[in-house]
């Protein structure tokens, strides 16, 4: 019987597939997602190598060449202080990526820890964590950020000043650090709840999958089961969420910078560039267009990549 069982299975000869490889294959089939990936990689390249790519210093002013339209010398023109817009947009990309990646990383980390504990242990801990999550989600985001900014900025600034006086280390005079810490902190504090909920739901559903029961029946220990059975299977949706979350974080950062509670001038951010450009867009539309285009392209790319990853990692969803 066994010989017969093999007879025609031998026909199936394919390289052994792997779920990640399969997902990559499916992602490659999706043009939108692939294009988005290329755009994101290009933007990331610009962000990382920005200082070597910019034709000018993003701070150097050329008061003679103010508000220049795009030309060879300044492909995106210059702003009202005669600074090169291309260089500023490139630095803005740097800001956007630094903020998006750090914020998403912190938010995801909070989410994984809280969600995994809540999901795995359940009971009272679960209820408390979920209550806390819901509370956080119910507070208006903008309000929370304003409150954090208003209440934390002055003491932080005072602390930096004190540190500088004590150590004379110039790093404490850099106000950009305060901006970033506040922006990261407040944004991470408002963006973690969805990750916590997702991780909890994943852990809950995977924990009850038959293969986890099967692993218990094999006599495997709990850490082995978590590491080899629960975590790898709970990862897919989180990857999708993180990809989409990066785009959202960029929009948030721009929005806050636009409102002046995020990254402040002179450090370029797409958001504060848009804010500056908006005041003069009738006369110098390129000042608004350049950062706005960058922001639009980046967020659309992240959103399409997220969709593509979703389809690629959950093939059953499409059929």
């Amino acid at each position: 019987m066994s010989d017969m069982a093999l007879k025609q299975e031998d026909v199936r000869e394919e390289p052994p597939a792997n779920l990640w490889r399969d997902a990559w294959y499916r992602l490659k089939q999706n043009r939108m997602a692939l294009t988005s990936l290329v755009i994101i990689l290009a933007l990331a390249f610009i962000a990382v190598f920005g200082p070597w790519l910019t034709p000018y210093d993003f701070l150097s002013q050329d008061l003679i060449a103010r508000n220049q339209p795009p030309a060879w010398a300044h492909p995106f023109g210059t702003d009202e202080l005669g600074r090169d817009v291309l260089s500023r947009v490139i630095y803005g990309t740097r800001t956007a990526f630094i903020v998006a990646i750090s914020v998403t990383a912190v938010a995801t980390l909070i989410g994984i820890v809280l969600g995994a504990f809540a999901g795995y242990f359940g009971g009272l801990l679960d209820r408390f964590v979920m209550w806390f999550t819901d509370m956080t989600m119910s507070v208006p985001q903008l309000l929370l950020v304003v409150v954090i900014n208003a209440s934390l900025k002055p003491p932080l600034a005072r602390w930096m000043e004190a540190q500088y006086l004590e150590t004379l280390n110039p790093i404490y005079r850099n106000s950009i650090i305060i901006d970033f810490v506040l922006v990261f902190g407040s944004m991470a504090l408002i963006t973690w709840p969805p990750y916590a909920r997702l991780v909890r739901a994943q852990v809950l559903s995977v924990r009850n999958r038959p293969y986890v029961t099967a692993a218990r029946a094999l006599g495997l220990s709990t850490p082995v089961i978590i590491a080899r059975y629960i975590v790898p299977n709970a990862l897919g949706p989180l990857i999708v969420a993180v990809s989409a979350g990066l785009g959202t974080a960029m929009v948030l950062e721009s929005a806050f910078s636009f409102l002046g509670i995020g990254v402040n001038p002179p450090m370029p951010s797409w958001g504060n560039m848009i804010a500056d450009g908006l005041r003069v867009w009738r006369n110098y539309p390129h000042l608004l267009l350049a950062p706005a285009m960058m922001l639009a392209v980046a967020t659309v790319a992240f959103s399409f990549l997220g969709d593509g990853l979703n389809d690629a990692l959950n093939p059953r969803g499409q059929k």
């Binding site: 019987m1 010989d3 017969m4 069982a5 093999l6 007879k7 025609q8 299975e9 026909v11 199936r12």
Partner: peptide, 22 residues
């Protein structure tokens, strides 16, 4: 008594009688 093997998947069916391999 059992029939060996498994039914062919669509797209992998043999050229002749579909049952021939089993």
């Amino acid at each position: 008594s059992s029939i060996g093997g498994t039914p062919p998947e669509p797209g992998r069916r043999p050229a002749g009688c579909p049952f021939a391999p089993r």
